[in-house]
Design a protein around this nucleic acid. Structure first.
Lengths: 116, 116
DNA sequence: CACGCTAGCTTGTGATGCAAGGTAGCATCG
DNA sequence: CGATGCTACCTTGCATCACAAGCTAGCGTG
């Protein structure tokens, strides 16, 4: 049954992953594997590397994140991602959109605004 | 800019639409066009008929909704959708999943659970 | 120099939102 | 009684996206 639960969660997560990643980067730069690990710590927000990297590519192409290669003390170089100025305002607006949608859904769930 | 806002909203809505429709049907049976209209009343949850009908087909195939044809006083017959017993428990579990995910996202947005 | 770990990225698939278009019942108007 | 228009259901084609699986490559150790 855990599988079914996971699939449901996966549905909800769609579209919100981008917001969550921007929010994480708002607190400081991170590299790919680190982002995957941070998400894995939060039940319901897990995402595999195969999901994260294409998303990060899209974010970079869209100009909302900037990247820097840095040496690693223990392995291959890491590509650090950080919010660009455009990314910061995108985060602000996405956060507002998110709150609106979440409120609308909660409203439906609680039977609100029902004039029948 | 309104267009940009809509696209963002569209991203978030993904996956949540199903939950919202089940929640609407939980209050009584509705037919297709009526569902589209109800969603249109709620800013952020709008969805076109081309989105709704395939989704309703999937829900029927999955056994979470039942359907009944009824005559209309003013036009062609309407196909009414209503929650099946399986749909009711699905709604319960999806609601729980939704609240979990929404809480996790809010947590990230507010900088919660940050041990750095 | 082979193995294994870390790290980044690509490919292929399936699901899904959505615009556009198609079919059809019913009523009204000339 | 044919044309027009409204309501209602549904399909097609396309673009996006999460995801599993797999690939490349740097670096250190035995």
């Amino acid at each position: 049954m855990a599988r079914v639960r996971d699939e449901r969660a996966s549905q909800f997560r769609k579209g919100a992953l981008e917001l969550v990643i921007l929010a994480l980067l708002d607190r400081g730069e991170l590299y790919g594997v680190e982002i995957v690990d941070r998400l894995a710590e939060r039940p319901g927000l897990e995402a595999s590397a195969g999901t994260i990297y294409p998303l990060l590519s899209r974010l970079k192409k869209a100009g909302v994140v900037d990247t820097t290669w840095r040496e690693s003390p223990v392995g291959p170089p890491r590509k650090y991602y950080r919010l660009s100025p455009a990314g910061a305002s995108e985060l602000t607006e996405m956060t507002r959109s998110w709150r609106d949608i979440a409120a609308a859904i909660d409203d439906v769930l609680t039977g609100g605004a029902d004039d029948a």
